[in-house]
Amino acid sequence: MDIVSTKAVRKYSFLAKTSFASKIAYPLDVISRTFFFALVLFIFTQLWGALLGADSSIAGFSRQQLVWYLMATESIMLSNARIERRIEDDVKSGAVAYILIRPLHFVWYQCAIYFGESASSLIFNILIGSIIATLLVGVPPISVGFLPLILVVMTLAFLLQFLIKIFLALLAFWVEDTGPFFWIYSKVLFTLGGLFVPIDIYPEWLRRVTVAMPFNYILYQPARLFVNFNLAAFVQVLGIQAMWSVLLTALVLYIYKQGVKKVSVNGG
Protein backbone atom coordinates (compact mmCIF):
# COMPACT_ATOMS: atom_id res chain seq x y z
CA MET A 1 0.00 0.00 0.00
CA ASP A 2 1.07 3.54 -0.59
CA ILE A 3 2.51 5.62 2.13
CA VAL A 4 0.25 8.58 2.53
CA SER A 5 2.41 11.33 1.18
CA THR A 6 1.68 14.50 -0.73
CA LYS A 7 2.79 12.72 -3.87
CA ALA A 8 0.35 9.89 -3.30
CA VAL A 9 -2.46 12.34 -2.61
CA ARG A 10 -1.59 14.29 -5.75
CA LYS A 11 -1.52 11.06 -7.73
CA TYR A 12 -4.99 9.95 -6.77
CA SER A 13 -6.55 13.39 -6.84
CA PHE A 14 -5.26 13.96 -10.34
CA LEU A 15 -6.63 10.59 -11.32
CA ALA A 16 -10.02 11.71 -10.01
CA LYS A 17 -9.70 14.95 -11.97
CA THR A 18 -8.90 13.04 -15.16
CA SER A 19 -11.89 10.75 -14.83
CA PHE A 20 -14.04 13.81 -14.15
CA ALA A 21 -12.85 15.36 -17.42
CA SER A 22 -13.33 12.10 -19.29
CA LYS A 23 -16.87 11.80 -18.02
CA ILE A 24 -17.97 15.22 -19.21
CA ALA A 25 -16.33 14.84 -22.62
CA TYR A 26 -19.74 13.99 -24.11
CA PRO A 27 -22.30 16.71 -23.40
CA LEU A 28 -25.15 14.52 -24.63
CA ASP A 29 -24.33 11.94 -21.97
CA VAL A 30 -24.28 14.60 -19.29
CA ILE A 31 -27.60 16.03 -20.44
CA SER A 32 -29.35 12.68 -20.58
CA ARG A 33 -28.07 11.68 -17.13
CA THR A 34 -29.23 14.96 -15.69
CA PHE A 35 -32.55 14.68 -17.46
CA PHE A 36 -33.16 11.27 -15.94
CA PHE A 37 -32.35 12.67 -12.52
CA ALA A 38 -34.83 15.51 -13.05
CA LEU A 39 -37.45 13.02 -14.17
CA VAL A 40 -37.12 10.83 -11.10
CA LEU A 41 -37.13 13.83 -8.82
CA PHE A 42 -40.29 15.04 -10.52
CA ILE A 43 -42.07 11.69 -10.16
CA PHE A 44 -41.13 11.41 -6.50
CA THR A 45 -42.27 14.91 -5.63
CA GLN A 46 -45.59 14.19 -7.34
CA LEU A 47 -45.91 10.96 -5.38
CA TRP A 48 -45.26 12.78 -2.15
CA GLY A 49 -47.82 15.38 -3.12
CA ALA A 50 -50.37 12.58 -3.46
CA LEU A 51 -49.29 10.92 -0.21
CA LEU A 52 -49.43 14.08 1.85
CA GLY A 53 -52.79 15.09 0.49
CA ALA A 54 -54.05 17.85 2.70
CA ASP A 55 -51.51 17.30 5.50
CA SER A 56 -48.79 19.90 5.82
CA SER A 57 -46.15 17.71 7.39
CA ILE A 58 -45.27 14.15 8.28
CA ALA A 59 -42.91 12.74 10.91
CA GLY A 60 -41.53 16.22 11.46
CA PHE A 61 -40.85 16.87 7.78
CA SER A 62 -42.70 19.77 6.19
CA ARG A 63 -43.70 19.60 2.54
CA GLN A 64 -40.84 21.91 1.70
CA GLN A 65 -38.34 19.85 3.64
CA LEU A 66 -39.53 16.67 1.95
CA VAL A 67 -38.88 18.02 -1.51
CA TRP A 68 -35.37 19.12 -0.58
CA TYR A 69 -34.85 15.81 1.19
CA LEU A 70 -35.69 14.02 -2.06
CA MET A 71 -33.38 16.33 -3.95
CA ALA A 72 -30.52 15.35 -1.63
CA THR A 73 -31.12 11.57 -1.57
CA GLU A 74 -31.70 11.41 -5.31
CA SER A 75 -28.53 13.40 -5.97
CA ILE A 76 -26.45 10.95 -3.97
CA MET A 77 -28.19 7.90 -5.38
CA LEU A 78 -28.15 8.84 -9.06
CA SER A 79 -24.77 10.55 -9.14
CA ASN A 80 -22.83 7.60 -7.86
CA ALA A 81 -20.71 6.30 -10.69
CA ARG A 82 -21.47 2.91 -12.15
CA ILE A 83 -18.04 1.45 -11.69
CA GLU A 84 -19.28 -2.06 -10.93
CA ARG A 85 -19.51 -3.32 -14.50
CA ARG A 86 -16.00 -2.09 -15.25
CA ILE A 87 -14.48 -3.58 -12.12
CA GLU A 88 -16.17 -6.87 -12.81
CA ASP A 89 -14.86 -6.85 -16.38
CA ASP A 90 -11.37 -5.98 -15.13
CA VAL A 91 -11.48 -8.84 -12.68
CA LYS A 92 -12.82 -11.32 -15.22
CA SER A 93 -10.57 -10.36 -18.13
CA GLY A 94 -7.52 -10.20 -15.91
CA ALA A 95 -7.08 -6.50 -16.69
CA VAL A 96 -6.58 -6.07 -12.96
CA ALA A 97 -3.08 -7.19 -13.85
CA TYR A 98 -2.39 -4.16 -16.02
CA ILE A 99 -3.12 -1.86 -13.16
CA LEU A 100 -0.81 -3.91 -10.99
CA ILE A 101 2.15 -2.93 -13.17
CA ARG A 102 1.80 0.71 -12.22
CA PRO A 103 2.68 2.17 -8.89
CA LEU A 104 -0.98 2.31 -7.90
CA HIS A 105 -3.21 0.37 -5.56
CA PHE A 106 -6.14 -1.15 -7.42
CA VAL A 107 -8.71 -0.26 -4.78
CA TRP A 108 -7.64 3.37 -4.43
CA TYR A 109 -7.26 3.64 -8.19
CA GLN A 110 -10.93 2.66 -8.56
CA CYS A 111 -11.83 4.92 -5.66
CA ALA A 112 -10.28 7.95 -7.35
CA ILE A 113 -12.10 7.17 -10.58
CA TYR A 114 -15.33 6.69 -8.67
CA PHE A 115 -15.07 10.06 -6.98
CA GLY A 116 -14.12 11.83 -10.19
CA GLU A 117 -17.00 10.36 -12.15
CA SER A 118 -19.53 10.79 -9.36
CA ALA A 119 -18.56 14.43 -8.93
CA SER A 120 -19.16 15.05 -12.62
CA SER A 121 -22.78 13.95 -12.24
CA LEU A 122 -23.32 15.36 -8.78
CA ILE A 123 -22.57 18.93 -9.82
CA PHE A 124 -25.18 18.92 -12.57
CA ASN A 125 -27.73 16.97 -10.56
CA ILE A 126 -27.51 19.32 -7.59
CA LEU A 127 -27.77 22.31 -9.89
CA ILE A 128 -30.86 21.04 -11.72
CA GLY A 129 -32.30 19.54 -8.54
CA SER A 130 -32.00 22.83 -6.70
CA ILE A 131 -33.70 24.67 -9.52
CA ILE A 132 -36.58 22.21 -9.57
CA ALA A 133 -36.95 22.19 -5.79
CA THR A 134 -36.83 25.98 -5.62
CA LEU A 135 -39.50 26.26 -8.30
CA LEU A 136 -41.70 23.77 -6.46
CA VAL A 137 -41.35 24.84 -2.83
CA GLY A 138 -38.96 27.77 -2.58
CA VAL A 139 -35.41 28.12 -1.29
CA PRO A 140 -33.92 25.37 0.89
CA PRO A 141 -34.50 25.41 4.63
CA ILE A 142 -30.82 25.66 5.49
CA SER A 143 -28.20 28.27 6.25
CA VAL A 144 -25.23 28.44 3.94
CA GLY A 145 -22.80 28.19 6.86
CA PHE A 146 -23.59 24.51 7.37
CA LEU A 147 -22.98 23.53 3.79
CA PRO A 148 -19.30 22.66 4.22
CA LEU A 149 -20.26 20.30 7.04
CA ILE A 150 -22.95 18.73 4.87
CA LEU A 151 -20.33 18.27 2.19
CA VAL A 152 -18.16 16.30 4.62
CA VAL A 153 -21.03 13.96 5.43
CA MET A 154 -21.87 13.63 1.75
CA THR A 155 -18.29 12.75 0.90
CA LEU A 156 -18.29 10.01 3.48
CA ALA A 157 -21.62 8.83 2.12
CA PHE A 158 -20.01 8.45 -1.31
CA LEU A 159 -17.05 6.66 0.26
CA LEU A 160 -19.43 4.17 1.92
CA GLN A 161 -21.19 3.66 -1.41
CA PHE A 162 -17.87 3.04 -3.09
CA LEU A 163 -16.74 0.53 -0.50
CA ILE A 164 -19.95 -1.46 -0.69
CA LYS A 165 -19.93 -1.44 -4.48
CA ILE A 166 -16.33 -2.47 -4.88
CA PHE A 167 -16.87 -5.16 -2.28
CA LEU A 168 -19.73 -6.59 -4.35
CA ALA A 169 -17.83 -6.16 -7.62
CA LEU A 170 -14.75 -7.91 -6.24
CA LEU A 171 -16.88 -10.97 -5.60
CA ALA A 172 -16.39 -11.48 -9.34
CA PHE A 173 -13.16 -13.19 -8.34
CA TRP A 174 -15.35 -16.04 -7.14
CA VAL A 175 -18.76 -15.84 -8.81
CA GLU A 176 -19.72 -15.75 -12.46
CA ASP A 177 -21.93 -12.70 -12.46
CA THR A 178 -22.22 -9.98 -9.82
CA GLY A 179 -24.98 -8.05 -11.62
CA PRO A 180 -27.81 -9.51 -9.52
CA PHE A 181 -26.11 -8.38 -6.30
CA PHE A 182 -26.32 -4.82 -7.56
CA TRP A 183 -30.03 -5.06 -8.34
CA ILE A 184 -30.62 -6.08 -4.77
CA TYR A 185 -28.22 -3.48 -3.45
CA SER A 186 -30.08 -0.69 -5.22
CA LYS A 187 -33.35 -1.91 -3.74
CA VAL A 188 -31.76 -2.06 -0.30
CA LEU A 189 -30.76 1.57 -0.72
CA PHE A 190 -34.25 2.35 -1.92
CA THR A 191 -35.80 0.98 1.24
CA LEU A 192 -33.23 0.74 4.04
CA GLY A 193 -31.33 3.74 2.71
CA GLY A 194 -34.39 5.96 2.87
CA LEU A 195 -34.28 7.09 -0.75
CA PHE A 196 -37.92 8.00 -1.02
CA VAL A 197 -39.14 7.97 2.53
CA PRO A 198 -37.34 9.33 5.58
CA ILE A 199 -36.91 6.29 7.80
CA ASP A 200 -38.68 8.12 10.64
CA ILE A 201 -42.01 7.05 9.21
CA TYR A 202 -41.08 3.35 9.28
CA PRO A 203 -42.58 1.10 11.94
CA GLU A 204 -40.36 1.25 15.02
CA TRP A 205 -38.84 -2.25 14.64
CA LEU A 206 -37.89 -1.57 11.04
CA ARG A 207 -36.44 1.80 11.88
CA ARG A 208 -34.18 0.13 14.44
CA VAL A 209 -33.01 -2.48 11.97
CA THR A 210 -32.32 0.26 9.46
CA VAL A 211 -30.29 2.42 11.82
CA ALA A 212 -28.09 -0.53 12.73
CA MET A 213 -27.01 -0.91 9.11
CA PRO A 214 -24.73 1.32 7.04
CA PHE A 215 -27.22 2.08 4.25
CA ASN A 216 -29.09 4.92 5.93
CA TYR A 217 -25.76 6.72 6.40
CA ILE A 218 -25.51 6.91 2.62
CA LEU A 219 -28.85 8.57 1.87
CA TYR A 220 -31.09 9.30 4.83
CA GLN A 221 -28.63 10.83 7.30
CA PRO A 222 -26.89 13.27 4.94
CA ALA A 223 -30.25 14.35 3.49
CA ARG A 224 -31.81 14.80 6.92
CA LEU A 225 -28.88 16.91 8.05
CA PHE A 226 -29.25 18.91 4.87
CA VAL A 227 -32.87 19.85 5.53
CA ASN A 228 -32.64 19.96 9.29
CA PHE A 229 -29.14 20.61 10.58
CA ASN A 230 -28.24 19.83 14.12
CA LEU A 231 -24.67 19.86 15.38
CA ALA A 232 -25.02 16.96 17.83
CA ALA A 233 -26.62 14.80 15.15
CA PHE A 234 -23.90 15.82 12.73
CA VAL A 235 -21.13 14.69 15.07
CA GLN A 236 -22.88 11.41 15.70
CA VAL A 237 -23.47 10.72 12.02
CA LEU A 238 -19.89 11.60 11.20
CA GLY A 239 -18.61 9.21 13.86
CA ILE A 240 -20.74 6.31 12.69
CA GLN A 241 -19.89 6.96 9.05
CA ALA A 242 -16.21 6.93 9.94
CA MET A 243 -16.64 3.68 11.84
CA TRP A 244 -18.38 2.00 8.89
CA SER A 245 -15.75 3.36 6.52
CA VAL A 246 -12.93 1.84 8.53
CA LEU A 247 -14.72 -1.49 8.85
CA LEU A 248 -15.62 -1.69 5.20
CA THR A 249 -12.17 -0.56 4.07
CA ALA A 250 -10.62 -3.37 6.06
CA LEU A 251 -13.08 -5.81 4.54
CA VAL A 252 -12.48 -4.58 0.99
CA LEU A 253 -8.70 -4.66 1.32
CA TYR A 254 -8.88 -8.13 2.78
CA ILE A 255 -11.12 -9.50 0.05
CA TYR A 256 -9.04 -7.79 -2.62
CA LYS A 257 -5.90 -9.41 -1.23
CA GLN A 258 -7.56 -12.81 -1.31
CA GLY A 259 -8.76 -12.20 -4.85
CA VAL A 260 -5.40 -11.07 -6.16
CA LYS A 261 -3.76 -14.05 -4.54
CA LYS A 262 -6.17 -16.13 -6.57
CA VAL A 263 -5.11 -14.34 -9.76
CA SER A 264 -1.47 -14.72 -8.82
CA VAL A 265 -1.91 -18.38 -8.17
CA ASN A 266 -4.29 -19.24 -10.95
CA GLY A 267 -3.67 -16.69 -13.63
CA GLY A 268 -6.00 -14.14 -15.10
Binding site: K11, L15, T18, R102, P103
Partner: peptide, 11 residues
Protein backbone atom coordinates in the same frame (compact mmCIF):
# COMPACT_ATOMS: atom_id res chain seq x y z
CA UNK B 1 -4.08 14.44 -20.14
CA UNK B 2 -2.89 10.85 -19.81
CA UNK B 3 0.73 12.05 -19.85
CA UNK B 4 -0.01 14.54 -17.13
CA UNK B 5 -1.76 11.86 -15.07
CA UNK B 6 1.15 9.48 -15.51
CA UNK B 7 3.53 12.16 -14.29
CA UNK B 8 1.61 12.12 -11.01
CA UNK B 9 1.34 8.36 -10.91
CA UNK B 10 5.08 8.01 -11.32
CA UNK B 11 5.64 10.97 -9.00
Amino acid sequence: DTFRLLSYIYE
